[in-house]
Nucleic acid binder design. Sequence first.
DNA 1: ACAGCCATGTAACTTGTTACATGATTTT
DNA 2: AAAATCATGTAACAAGTTACATGGCTGT
Lengths: 195, 195
Amino acid sequence: MSVRYAILGLLAQKPRHGYELRSAFHAVVGGEETWNVKPAQVYATLSRLAEAGWVAEEGVEQGSGPEKRIYDITPQGRQALEQWFYSGVAPEHQRDEFFVKLMIALVTGDVQPRRVIQTQRVFLYRELHAVTVLRQSYNLRTQLAQVLMIDKAIMHLEADLRWLDMVEGRLEEIQRQPLPEPDIRPRGRPRKVEV
Amino acid sequence: MSVRYAILGLLAQKPRHGYELRSAFHAVVGGEETWNVKPAQVYATLSRLAEAGWVAEEGVEQGSGPEKRIYDITPQGRQALEQWFYSGVAPEHQRDEFFVKLMIALVTGDVQPRRVIQTQRVFLYRELHAVTVLRQSYNLRTQLAQVLMIDKAIMHLEADLRWLDMVEGRLEEIQRQPLPEPDIRPRGRPRKVEV
DNA sequence: ACAGCCATGTAACTTGTTACATGATTTT
DNA sequence: AAAATCATGTAACAAGTTACATGGCTGT
């Protein structure tokens, strides 16, 4: 979803060809190291965007070398892009892998949840240290994307660490009371639900 | 990735069939409303797990009604599961959709980054309010998953909001200096890189 | 000559979603 | 009889990754 609109946005700036879109994406979002968009995805996305009528192939440019298939954004594309810009992005809290891991660890007998939590805590601390060191090497003016991303990473890592502390607190509160089995509701048509 | 190991973990608890795995997943992770795993995914994942040798079909149980194909975890499966439990989950900061949106908004001329930021801020505030209200309706002892998830959501939303403030600060710092175009390096083989 | 960029793709695979298909069972 | 659950799947699609294939241009 992100790459699709990113390509659309870069085409709104000026017409470009696939290879150029890929470099521009890396330049804007923060380099090949942080988000390496594969050529396959760029060309596939361009085809889908063209099929949807959001971009159009403008023609082929041929200098000295291979031909470049130039794409441009359409009016419909511009409209879709604006809608994207001015709509909110919902963070998906629930589809977090560690959350699933923790909940499964709590019901599966032969694993210690506290060790699972501790493993994650150590991991997050290492990550926090790594990005804090990395931060010093970036310059706000020339590497805005990198700086903003690290700011975000730090805040999220701190939030995750505080959450892990909270989880341990909550678990102590309920003190080894096993999770209830899923409540089996009676089969068939349920009676009218009273509110 | 999460669902795969969740199914494995639930089978480590006891042998189950596909339909039961789906209900158990919902019961443990927090209900159909928060993460509705589709039957298609459960059965597809079971096939893949069986092919990998992590689970095995134990046989068919036939009561009054349709047959149930019971699966159980294998020793290899148990090993893989333990490795999963005791390894860290890396949060993916960079593949955040709003981050991409912001960076693209900053280079695309015809959109106001501050309005994009404000839209997201309003969205996050609404979400924060919604989960704060929802929190009151849950009970720690009987709805642990829901409570923990909301704790996490609140902390992340607060982190995101603080980050948005920080972004505006950073943008004022560089005060409408346009982002530099991607630096075009000379083509051909680069000379030896000096460290 | 060779390394490495410029430029385009195809094919296979993974994880997950959506829609469809089938049929038995159970309670109101 | 209708509604809803129990139980299993197939097919098509979307987003993304990995690997492969092709060929020209350019600087050391």
